[in-house]
């Protein structure tokens, strides 16, 4: 339950099945995009550092 404009309790709007499915797919797409961004920044960082990143004094 959430609060309405007058402070009264309002039942959350329920989505119908089609709307819920669309929202689920959009959420998944956003997750994929965010995951891809993380991957891009990680791979880019390693690529920019170059092979020297593996050489460290022992």
């Amino acid at each position: 339950m959430s609060r309405g404009p007058k402070g009264n309790e309002v039942a959350p709007k329920s989505l119908d099945a089609v709307q819920a499915e669309r929202r689920r797919k959009r959420s998944l797409a956003i997750a994929v995009v965010l995951g891809t961004l993380v991957l891009i920044f990680y791979v880019l960082t390693i690529a920019k550092l170059g092979p020297q990143v593996l050489n460290r004094p022992l």
């Binding site: 669309r22 797919k25 959009r26 797409a29």
Partner: peptide
């Protein structure tokens, strides 16, 4: 918030 992923 009603658009499909394919619409975007």
């Amino acid at each position: 918030g009603q658009g499909e992923v394919s619409d975007f």
